[in-house]
């Protein structure tokens, strides 16, 4: 078990190192140099040289990479040449909004998807199952940037229940905070609900055919009890992996809704940094998110053994 954990850890470290290398190489992809991108068309060659020197971009790639790593280990992702704010500070400032959006969206879509999957798996093949599965195919084809404006129209303009844009911080009260979060969360949840439902329904249907479910039913246990206590847990393992994987799309979704609803999160930071050609901030945020994504997926992989005793034995053998 210890060996598996160490192996997994080592692999993740390698991936993170590569991710960092990719992000350093990214700057060198810039036509001309990163400094000329930042300064725009009116920059003189002297200004570009100076900024390149300031950002350390005049050094060879491997030296840039080592310096970048050394700084990043101490939590320093560089300083924005535009706003002169350390990128780490900017990230910390924006992080709570994005985390709230992602956690709410994940919790909401899991909640809905589990209920829908239980219903459609216990009624597999009936019109109810077909209706739910059909609905989930529809949800699957509604990306956040389509769902967002449509939800704004119906939820905010027509019904007037939710604000069109803007964000109320939790410090302004939980009610207003949630009110401003509901539409954005809904917009990114639709595709997640659909993909979670699809997977869990299939796994549940397969589990319900297993002998131990038949045995439990034969002992006289109720359908609901067997479903919740016997079938749900062994069916939910691949769902957990999917949660980790879908996190990538979820983060993409938060970028979209943050831009659409003008929420002060990481996504908006990236978009506004791109518009002001602040390449350093973009680089910092992207690497930060990628690292978080790698770590979460590693934890998900490791949690497998903890959740499912059967894999634990295999890992030891």
């Amino acid at each position: 078990m210890v060996l598996t954990v160490l192996q997994r850890l080592g692999r993740s470290v390698l991936v993170v190192l590569l991710v960092a290398l990719g992000s350093v190489l990214l700057l060198s992809l810039a036509p001309g140099s990163a400094a000329s991108v930042i300064l725009g068309e009116n920059a003189t060659p002297e200004m570009i040289d100076e900024l390149n020197k300031e950002l350390g971009l005049d050094r060879p790639i491997w030296s840039q990479y080592l310096h970048w790593l050394a700084d990043a280990v101490t939590g320093d992702f560089g300083t924005s040449p535009i706003t002169h704010q350390p990128v780490t500070d900017a990230i910390i400032e924006r992080l709570p909004v994005t985390i709230e959006l992602a956690v709410l969206a994940l919790a909401f879509s899991l909640f809905v998807a589990v209920i829908l999957a239980i219903i459609s798996a216990s009624l597999a093949g009936t019109w109810v199952d077909r209706a739910i599965t059909g609905l989930s195919s529809v949800f699957l084809s509604v990306p956040a940037f389509v769902a967002g404006p449509v939800l704004v129209y119906y939820g905010a303009v027509q019904l007037g229940w939710f604000p069109v844009t803007g964000w109320n911080r939790i410090s302004e009260g939980l009610g207003p905070n949630l009110q401003s979060a509901i539409l954005p969360v809904l917009a990114i949840s639709l595709t997640e609900i659909a993909s979670f439902h699809r997977l869990l329904r299939t796994d549940l249907v397969a589990t319900l055919r297993e002998d131990f479910v038949g045995a439990a039913r034969a002992k006289g246990m109720g359908r609901g009890y067997v479903m919740l206590r016997h079938a749900l847990r062994p069916s939910s393992f691949s769902l957990i992996t999917l949660v980790g994987i879908n996190l990538g799309r979820l983060i993409g979704g938060t970028v979209i809704v943050e831009a659409l609803f003008t929420l002060p999160g990481l996504g908006q930071l990236v978009v506004s940094s791109i518009n002001s050609r602040d390449v350093i901030t973009v680089q910092g945020v992207v690497v930060f998110v990628a690292i978080v994504y790698v770590v979460v997926n590693m934890l998900v992989d490791l949690s497998y053994g903890w959740l499912d005793p059967r894999t634990r034995k295999v890992a030891r053998a």
């Binding site: 993170v16 590569l18 990214l26 990538g248 791109i274 973009v282 998110v289």
Partner: peptide
Amino acid sequence: LLTDALLAFPPLLLLLALSSI
């Protein structure tokens, strides 16, 4: 390892990073 590294970037963010450069 290379595919893992490529997959470590959330897709939309990777695209945004490219379009910033």
